[in-house]
């Protein structure tokens, strides 16, 4: 009873009888400026991203198909404001990658499967997912209100590979029995698990354009066949979903 009375006094300091309070407003609520917002002390928002790996022909044995080799992901971005021009923060998200290789010589898998040749190989695809943490430093341009505005981010990205899969598809030499064969490998021992890279991104309100350079090879030394050398550079964009 006492608690109920105290709660009543706290919640309804202004008591009205019989009437309905249609509007009640405290001025302090209107004037209060919070510290959460796109250009306030702290801000957090979600993002989606899509990027494409640079097409390469640098290695005779294995090149990358530009359009089919892509990255996509989503996550949250935290921002802490230092001044109207400078801020920092981090991205935390999931990063999915797919490489499509185009081979013109014998492959690793020819050792495993005698009848697989470069000519018969139709698909050579590597996919992997990563948990990614990417701290960044931001320079803002122009005067603005509580708005992300126009900016340039300098990003260090670190990723932990969570899953990987390598898929090969080829025309079987004995097509009267088997037309196509597929070979899938998971939990690959010949890829690195930890990655880092650097990224520069240009932002304008609700989108970013980025270029990223990966500083770590996908494949480790256990892969004794080096023609695999996935592209280190990817280009793409982020779509910012404001709070």
């Amino acid at each position: 009873m006492r608690i109920a009375l105290i709660a009543y006094v706290l919640v309804f300091p202004m008591v009205c009888f019989g009437q309905e309070t249609l509007l009640h407003k405290k001025t302090v609520e209107t004037l209060r400026e919070g510290d959460f917002g796109p250009n306030k002390k702290r801000y957090i928002h979600t993002f989606f991203k899509v990027g494409f790996y640079q097409k390469t022909n640098a290695w005779n044995a294995c090149s990358i198909q530009g359009g089919n080799s892509f990255t996509t992901g989503y996550g949250i971005r935290y921002k802490r404001k230092l001044s109207s021009k400078l801020s920092y923060g981090y991205d935390l998200g999931y990063d999915f990658n797919q490489y499509r290789f185009k081979r013109d010589s014998s492959s690793l898998y020819s050792q495993l499967n005698g009848f697989l040749t470069a000519d018969s190989l139709k698909t050579d695809k590597l996919t992997f997912g990563m948990l990614e943490l990417a701290p960044y430093f931001r320079i803002n341009f122009g005067q603005r209100g509580d708005h992300l505005g126009k900016y340039l981010d300098f990003v260090l990205s670190g990723g932990l590979m969570l899953s990987s899969k390598h898929v090969l598809k080829w025309d079987h030499p004995n097509s009267s029995i088997i037309k196509k064969s597929t070979y899938k490998s998971r939990r690959l021992g010949y890829t690195n698990k930890l990655f880092f890279g650097i990224e520069i991104r240009y932002g304008n309100a609700f989108y970013n354009l980025f270029i990223r350079y990966r500083c770590v090879d996908i494949f480790n030394s256990k892969l004794n066949e080096r023609p695999y050398q996935p592209s280190l550079i990817r280009l793409g964009g982020y779509l910012i979903i404001p709070d």
Binding site: P13, M14, V15, C16, F17, G18, Q19, E20, T21, L22, L23, H24, K25, K26, T27, V28
Partner: peptide, 23 residues
Amino acid sequence: GFLDEFSVLSVEKNPIAQIDLFR
């Protein structure tokens, strides 16, 4: 000289409102 708070009430019967004096 500025308002701390304001309110609008429907009018049905007396008393219309009671306001704590300390406020």
